Amino acid sequence: MNLHALRLFHVIATTGSVTRASELLTISQPAITAQIKKFEKELSIPLLKPQGRGITLTEAGAEIALLAKRLFAVEQQIEQYAHHYRTGTHGSIRLAATYLPSHFLLPTWLAKFKQQFEQVDMMITTTNSSDALKQLLNVDVDIAIYGGIPENYPDTIQTEELFQDELWFVVAPGHRFANQHVSLEEMVKEPFVMREEGSSTRERLLSLCRTYSTSTPSISLQFNGLYEAIMAVIAGYGANFVSSLVVREYVERGELCRVYVDGIHLTNTIAICTRKNEPLSASTTNFIAMIRQNPVS
């Protein structure tokens, strides 16, 4: 089927006039008439008939005009969708985030983003550090928001640092180390309440002990969530090694106290991770741009 001729017929049917169609399409009337006659011959159906000094649709022409109207409406929808997808106003983003940014940064980021790009679908997975990067490498997600020490994937992962977050040792206010300066060797003799294996902060604590050749701390309680681990320490058991973003408000309210370990000052990297040399969708690019403008909630 000659879609160009169908489009000419659609404009004639919509305007009710070959003359008006000629003006809108900037095509001469004889050229349009010749195309329509050729199209009628192709279909073996008369589409137009004279009426007074003008033309009108035949019965078959009216039915085909209705179908053409639907077809070109769908064409317009496709063009609109493509435009929206290119500009990032529609689409989807698959995101993996480690617990720290997921709980303390993403809620604000997502709220700001959805206010501007309501039609973009967001699929978020909260997981530990190693699994977040694994999902990115396996193309299960488009972007990973990482809190920790970025693992070394020089050929596959692109990392953009947003900011550095301090790591603190914390205990309950009644603990003998509360607000005190102690050595690392003293600190690691305390029972620790930590997240599960695979947590970057837990791995940082163990790595710290290896670096300074101290004994490995006893992780006496293990939780899958940050909140549960913090609540256990607030309740009076053990110590935690944790992001300042997580516990700063608890410390300010006096529910937790810092322990200042001599010579130790560690930070987490909060970073955006993407796959190297792979183009991002417009919606993902817009989301990353929004994060850059609002790195800390």
Rank of each mutant, 00 (worst) to 15 (best):
E79R: 14
K189G: 14
L57D: 01
D131R: 15
A5T: 01
G147Q: 04
N2E: 06
V261T: 02
A5N: 12
N277H: 12
K276A: 08
G174D: 06
R53M: 11
L25R: 04
I27C: 09
H103N: 14
S243V: 03
Q35A: 13
Q222W: 05
Y85M: 13
A73F: 12
L221A: 12
C257L: 00
T14I: 00
Y146R: 05
T98A: 01
A271I: 02
S297C: 02
L184F: 03
A289R: 09
D155P: 00
H83T: 15
N268L: 14
L25I: 01
Q158P: 06
P191E: 07
A282V: 04
F223D: 10
R94W: 15
M231H: 11
P173H: 02
A96D: 06
Q77A: 13
M194L: 10
K112E: 10
P150F: 02
G254M: 04
S183F: 04
I32L: 10
P30A: 02
Q80T: 11
M290F: 01
Q293N: 10
V141W: 09
Y153F: 10
G52Q: 05
N268C: 07
F223M: 11
A229T: 00
P46L: 01
L3N: 10
I143P: 04
L25N: 00
G198W: 05
N152W: 13
K41L: 15
L71G: 08
A239I: 01
T126Y: 06
N128M: 07
T56H: 08
L24K: 06
T89L: 08
T156W: 11
R195V: 09
M1D: 10
V261P: 00
S243D: 03
N138E: 14
G16H: 02
I45G: 07
A111L: 13
D165Y: 05
E42N: 07
V171L: 05
